[in-house]
Structure formats: C-alpha cells, structure tokens
C-alpha cells in the first residue's frame, strides 16, 4: 500500500495468488474437459465397445486394455485409440 504501490509498474506480477488460481484452474479444467465436456461425443463409449469386440475376434483383450482419447488442437480433433496387446508368450492359442 501507499507510496510503492502507486509507482508499481506492473499490476500483475506472475507470483500473485490470482496468477496461481488461473494456472491451477487451467490445468484442472483441461483435465476434466478431457473426460466429459464438449470433448467427448456421445458415441464414444459405444465405439469403444464395438472396437473391443472386433479386436477380440482375433486377440483376447479386455476392457482395460483399450484407451480412447480425444484431443483438440487448434481447429483439429485427434481421436486416439490405444490398444495394448498381450505378450506373445501369454497369448492363448487362437481358436480355429
């Protein structure tokens, strides 16, 4: 307050609590949007389920081995599927 306050050049040093609040919010909001907001189309769970069924025809995998991720960068949307296949050794013989 007072004299120094008056001459302070920048109103928003990056160490203020407001700057900290903004940073924390940007992180948590981006994280939460990833799972729900605008990001996640309604069809995603169904798509994931069907995909799992298709892959299962050839390789035995379970729900937890499929990861679906939707990203937005600028004007692009990237839909990313990550399917972890079991090790060759642990793979049961394919049924005829």
């Amino acid at each position: 307050m007072g004299l120094f306050d008056y001459f302070r050049p920048s109103p928003r040093p990056t160490t203020t609590t407001a700057a900290l609040a903004k940073e924390r919010l940007q992180i948590i909001v981006a994280h939460e949007r990833g799972s729900s907001r605008r990001g996640s189309p309604e069809y995603l769970p169904a798509l994931k389920k069907e995909l799992l069924e298709v892959v299962r025809k050839y390789v035995p995998i379970d729900q937890s081995q499929v990861k679906v991720h939707l990203d937005r960068e600028g004007g692009f949307e990237v839909l990313e599927f990550n399917i972890t296949l079991p090790d060759e050794d642990h793979r049961p013989p394919a049924s005829p």
Partner: peptide
Amino acid sequence: PEVSSVRDSDRILGILAS
C-alpha cells in the same frame, strides 16, 4: 472470480453441451 465457482461453471457448460 474464484476457483471453485469457475470450475463448477465449466462443468455446467459441459452439461449444457451434452
């Protein structure tokens, strides 16, 4: 202009959109 309110508003925007 407070963290919990802004976060909750973002949630509501998600619900409006879905």
